[in-house]
Design a protein around this nucleic acid. Structure first.
Lengths: 230, 230
DNA sequence: TCACTCACATACCGTTGGTACGTACTCACA
DNA sequence: TGTGAGTACGTACCAACGGTATGTGAGTGA
């Protein structure tokens, strides 16, 4: 056995023009690790994926992994953040130009149902996410991405009412819709006819939104059990 | 070291009067294993609890564990089923006598919010469940317990409408409400003031149900995008 | 060019889930 | 009341895994 056999295969072309060669190489291996982990985690799941398999696919060793990340969970978190931010960007882009709150909610709903049908998003974010990160960290991540969009949309819808809701009450409504979307999304991606299932979800949530709108348009008051309503 | 030191401490009193002593002892150790696992899993989580810790608390060895269960996951599944069935029984009992579908939904909502505040249920069923069992097996379990109740309640509510919905459409509505309940429940159990959070959730979902009722009472038609409506 | 540092590679460790096998106890049947 | 068989475990062990300590060569700034 020679000193060190066949390592350092040629890295990607420099993608950070302002950085030194060392930094470019470093970023390259880090990206390779995240991509390999993303593939393995989404295929086999977190627990069933070994670090050896990840570093083998990334063509590095565990030394490199532990140089860039503090451990397996941190690597997962990097994967999670990437998937989540991409998905949130997709949804945010779709509702970008829409002005009317009710139409905005429907457009956002469709975009979310699109995202949640991606196997990778489903597995990494919705399935493994809460268990691997712990519910607290999972929620912190979502708070800044997907949930923030839902919060924005729901706030817009509820603001069409004559009465005002305080922040906790808007968040409660958003949590409810967020959970509904998540569960509905899972049922869509798990269905044999995803097209039909997606249409059903859209119709059902649309109907709920219609009911909400009717209450608001008819001037039905919402009784906040906690907040002080002036 | 003597041959076998201090084993076989006196088991529980016979709890299966019709069974033989062997079967009683066997059931006793099996129950001890499930109870120890329940405690450990709900405190430390699935991945962080070792089988050694479980068998130590149950005062048996791994031989006993692998005699009764095929592995760690099967043991978790036993714990899961127990928690789930107890919770479902609680909720089912609360909505038992209620006739009016709308009141039934509100009563069931309160019962579910009660259940979901139990740390054990939250951790075992909602957090670790999907990841450990896999989403498919998780869903199979829920299908027979909690979700079945939601399905029943939602079916009752939707049946007050003039139009009829086919089974997939009712299931879609139920999935949506189930997800909403789950997410809302988590936000309740994670809140610092659980009382206020619970009241908010109840008000919000109650408002959504009120909107649904208004649509139905006003005779607004629901357009099923898939099912053939005669 | 030369010391220094960063980005890894290598070798190793403790713990874990799981297995193979031995053994004490129970129970039907003589 | 023995006695063989089978059950219900206990004991010893293994392979695989996540993680760590340490070595090392290429890249960088002087």
């Amino acid at each position: 056995m020679s000193k060190s056999a066949a390592k350092r295969l040629l890295p990607k072309v420099p993608d950070l023009p302002g950085a030194s060669r060392r930094q470019q190489y470093s970023q390259s291996t880090k990206r390779a690790l995240v991509e390999a982990a993303l593939e393995q985690f989404s295929e086999r799941g977190y627990a069933a994926t070994s670090l050896d398999a990840i570093v083998a696919q990334a063509a590095v060793t565990k030394g490199a992994l532990y140089h860039h990340f503090t451990g397996k969970q941190a690597l997962f978190e990097a994967v999670f953040e990437r998937i989540e931010s991409e998905a949130a960007a997709d949804i945010a882009a779709s509702v970008k130009g829409v002005k009317d709150p009710w139409e905005k909610s429907l457009v956002g709903l469709r975009a979310f149902l699109e995202v949640v049908q991606q196997p990778t998003y489903r597995r990494i974010v919705m399935q493994e996410g809460p268990a691997v990160l712990g519910y607290e960290r999972f929620r912190e991540q979502e708070e800044r991405t997907s949930f923030a969009i839902v919060l924005d949309v729901v706030h817009g819808v509820l603001a069409t009412g004559a009465w005002e809701l305080d922040q906790p009450m808007v968040e409660t409504f958003s949590r409810i819709f967020f959970g509904a979307l998540a569960s509905a999304g899972e049922s869509v991606s798990g269905a044999e006819d995803a097209e039909a299932a997606s249409a059903r979800v859209e119709a059902a949530i649309g109907f709920l939104l219609l009911g909400l709108r009717k209450l608001i348009d008819d001037g039905v008051a919402f009784a906040d059990p906690v907040g002080d309503k002036s």
